[in-house]
Design a protein around this nucleic acid. Structure first.
Length: 137
DNA sequence: GCCAACGTTGGC
DNA sequence: GCCAACGTTGGC
């Protein structure tokens, strides 16, 4: 199973809001980038990803799970982009900051480090394990 | 189809 | 708040 990273500014959509959405989860709309779209399309039900706070916080704060695969994003007037639904699984007892990620040699190839602006990113098996361990999950 | 101009993102 | 990096747009 593949792993992912979902990036959001807390002022737009925060981890607390994701947790509040509960088991029903929410749609992850607003992606307008073709590479990010490709990742969304590749997602399978049950796959998990990190929830990352950009700008404010700058840390991986939780783990989410894909509960609905790719379908059209009703907020996209062009009709070119879609979205998935995700739900919160668990918060990280110790959020893993961007600084900590950059300081960890095993994470130097992470997309987050090399292409910070991509809003939906793939995470390798190794990276998944390292960050989970750092986060205390 | 190229590429300059522009807008947006996100770290600092 | 600044600005570098990047993606997109639109004129040619």
């Amino acid at each position: 199973m593949a792993h992912w990273l979902f990036k959001s500014e807390p002022s737009t959509w925060s981890w607390d809001q994701q947790v509040a959405a509960g088991e029903a989860g929410t749609f992850w709309n607003g992606v307008r980038n073709h590479l990010a779209k490709k990742h969304l399309q590749a997602m399978q039900r049950g796959e998990q990803g990190f929830f990352y706070h950009s700008n404010e916080g700058k840390a991986v704060v939780g783990i989410v799970e894909v509960i609905r695969t790719y379908y059209p994003d009703h907020t996209d007037e062009s009709g070119r982009f879609g979205m998935v639904d995700i739900k919160a699984v668990t918060g990280l007892p110790r959020p893993v900051t961007l600084d900590a990620i950059k300081a960890e040699p095993r994470l130097k190839d992470m997309v987050l480090v090399n292409n910070a602006r991509l809003s939906v990113q793939p995470v390798t098996e190794a990276e998944w394990a390292v960050i989970r361990a750092m986060g205390g999950v």
